[in-house]
Nucleic acid binder design. Structure first.
Length: 417
DNA sequence: TCTGGGGTCCTCGGGCAC
DNA sequence: TCTGGTGCCCGAGGACCC
């Protein structure tokens, strides 16, 4: 696989066999770090860590210069700094990342209407129908890399294959700034000697389970009896892995995907035991969720909360509502009720509120409701701060200040959500 | 060493209806 | 009326992705 430090770059020749490789996976290289360099060219060539400089934050992205020191995404920032003490810490600016993401996605949509964004920095493209317009998949992949570089100013890596799974693996191997084409006829050979943990959907736990049974390479999956695989990872995952191992992946590129839930969660800078502080935080998160629901024209059928205690054990509780709602007060009421029913009273590290089972409420509501909700967010912060001082309840303000925005503003003012 | 935030999907167990 | 089997829904938790 492509090595995390960027030293494993691959670029397939333009004339490479690309028969049947009609699905492209395009992935931006070290996206957040690249966008920060675009914004401030003096950062070019420096080891960069994108993440909040607080004690409890983790690395959101790192430049390849930082990755050479062993810095990786999701690593605590404190640990990353020990590995690379000279790294520059840059707080993330999601508004900026969204803007650049839109420019890149616009290029993809000029190439083919069949674009499935997978996250802010990657997408699948089905290019089988645009061959006459733009050429073979390898040519289209090469063209996209040039256009993204010239028109946006960052680099990306492209995998081209017959299925989404293989295209995704190919782009990962090609990184950074590479292109890897796997012709349909080469799929089985391509997969055979790759480790199971390189598969999309196999994380550390599943990999450990498989490896403990001697299943280390994808070819090992092909010779493992289905019943043994089922016992190890359950029937659904067993069936999927068996298919993927022989290059079968029926998933098509789906341009329109519907969100199934929206939520917010926040980790306190210091663990909190005070029930009133926790209640005001649940209220604030519920209001943020409600604002998003109404702006999208949705109602929630279920409200869920997530509580993480100081020892990192995590509980979730949820409740289906008699009537779907997008009202912050109602969501907050349910969230606080769910929290009250939890008996454990250890210090809390994180709280979260999520709206699930979304349904269309018949159009987004107007400015008045958003403003009323946001005023309630402000009021809750003010009253909590008056009561408890400038502790954890002011975290929203810290976040705003860290991102260079000062005190909290109306969501629309800085593109929040 | 000490673990973010926003999501999706799957499994498992309990309750309930038939 | 009671019991067991089956299927479905719901809630909780885990794994995974970026």
């Amino acid at each position: 696989m492509g090595r995390g430090d960027g030293s494993g770059r691959i670029v397939s020749a333009v004339g490479a066999d690309d028969a049947g490789a009609g699905i492209l996976h395009v992935d931006m290289d070290a996206f957040y770090a690249s966008v920060e360099v675009l914004h401030d060219p003096s950062l070019r060539g420096l080891p960069l860590i994108i993440g909040a400089p607080d004690g409890r934050s983790v690395v959101s992205s790192a430049s390849y210069e930082a990755r050479r020191y062993g810095v990786r995404s999701a690593m605590p920032v404190s640990q990353a700094l020990r590995l690379c003490p000279t790294a520059r810490i840059v707080p993330p600016d999601f508004t900026r990342y969204r803007d650049v993401s839109q420019q890149v996605m616009a290029i993809f949509e000029q190439v083919t209407p069949l674009v499935e964004p997978l996250s802010i920095d990657e997408a699948f493209l089905d290019v089988r129908g645009v061959r006459r317009l733009w050429g073979s998949p390898a040519e289209i992949g090469a063209m996209i890399r040039v256009r993204v570089q010239e028109e946006v100013g960052i680099t990306c890596s492209v995998g081209a294959a017959a299925t989404k799974h293989v295209a995704k693996m190919a782009s990962t191997m090609a990184k950074p700034d590479g292109l890897l084409v796997v012709a349909e006829a080469d799929t089985l050979a391509f997969l055979a000697d790759k480790p199971v943990r390189a598969m999309w959907g196999v994380g550390p736990k599943t990999a450990e389970t498989l490896e403990s049974r001697g299943i280390r390479l994808i070819r090992d999956l092909r010779t493992t009896p289905e019943s043994a695989l089922e016992r190890a990872v359950g029937p659904a995952l067993a069936a999927r892995l068996s298919d993927l191992a022989v290059g079968r992946d029926p998933r098509g590129v789906e341009p329109s995907r519907v969100e199934k839930s929206v939520g917010h969660e926040e980790t306190f800078e210091v663990d909190v035991s005070d029930a009133e502080v926790l209640h005001s935080e649940l209220t604030r998160l519920a209001d943020r969720v409600a604002v998003r629901l109404r702006r999208a024209g949705w109602e929630a059928g279920t409200v869920a909360i997530k509580i993480r205690f100081s020892d990192f054990t995590t509980l979730s509780r949820s409740q289906t509502l008699p009537e779907p709602t997008s009202v912050g007060q109602r969501i907050g009421e349910v969230a606080r009720g769910l929290f009250a029913a939890i008996e454990r009273r250890d210090p809390v590290r994180l709280v979260g509120v999520r709206a699930e089972k979304l349904r269309d409420a018949g159009g987004a509501l107007g400015l008045w409701d958003d403003d009323a909700d946001w005023r309630r967010v402000e009021d809750a912060l003010d009253s909590a701060q008056a009561k408890f001082g400038t502790g954890t309840v002011t975290r929203a303000r810290h976040l705003g200040a860290r991102a260079g925005r000062g005190a909290p503003q109306h969501p629309r003012a800085h593109g929040l959500d």
